[in-house]
């Protein structure tokens, strides 16, 4: 508990008086400002702050928390080890993970299912903080995920791995992504052997 400091007080000045009672000086003063804005905006549009949205986009901060993405390792595998930290910390309970066994024994687990319901998500960023593997990030800069169908907001693992994906068909077909456990096994064994 810090000690209280003596406050310095300032009494605000209430306006009034004969000049104000005349109405006109203030009306003319107000008109001067609005006219300045009017002519500046009609002639040069220099003060206009509107962003014509779909054509122009505002600059967003590099820290902007946008749509999630799942990062990949150098060898193309998903970094996520299905430790459930993000699912646990999520205040909106929007992450759903199902773990599968990874043949790579140094990793052990990988997410067979990694769904984010972006309609539930509150974009708080706690999942990013909670990830011990830097596997989930929110740095895609995507803030508009508008759609007319509810189901399109369920982002699956493959969509999340591709920052540009709008559908489940990822733009990077070369990324080896085991969809099921059975599918995963031969690929991983091949990798281990290779």
């Amino acid at each position: 508990m810090q000690t209280a400091k003596k406050p310095s007080v300032k009494t605000v000045q209430r306006q009034g008086g004969f000049l104000i009672d005349l109405y006109l000086p203030a009306i003319i003063g107000g008109l001067r400002i609005t006219l300045r804005h009017f002519f500046r905006n009609v002639i040069t549009q220099s003060d206009v702050v509107t962003i014509s949205y779909p054509e122009q986009k505002r600059r967003i901060s590099p820290r902007w928390r946008g749509r999630h993405r799942l990062t990949v390792r150098e060898d193309g595998f998903i970094k996520c080890v299905a430790c459930y930290m993000c699912e646990t910390v999520c205040p909106a309970k929007c992450i759903h993970i199902e773990a599968g066994e990874m043949p790579d024994k140094s990793v052990e687990k990988y997410p067979v299912v990694f769904d984010i319901d972006e309609l539930r998500c509150v974009f708080c960023g706690l999942c990013v903080e909670a990830c011990p593997k830097d596997a989930i990030r929110m740095d895609t800069g995507i803030y508009s995920m508008a759609s007319t169908e509810r189901v399109t907001f369920d982002y699956t693992r493959n969509m999340l791995m591709d920052a540009h994906a709008k559908t489940d068909k990822t733009k990077f077909p070369s990324t080896p992504l085991p969809l099921t456990q059975e599918e995963a096994l031969p690929q991983s064994t091949a990798k281990l052997a290779g």
Binding site: M1, Q2, T3, A4, K5, K6, P7, S8, V9, K10, T11, V12, R14
Partner: peptide
Amino acid sequence: PYDLRRAEPYLVYNELDFEIPVGT
């Protein structure tokens, strides 16, 4: 002139100068 930043200081408000505006 009751302002918690002065009455029960928290953070570093004690190191900063400001006036508390009051009305009449």
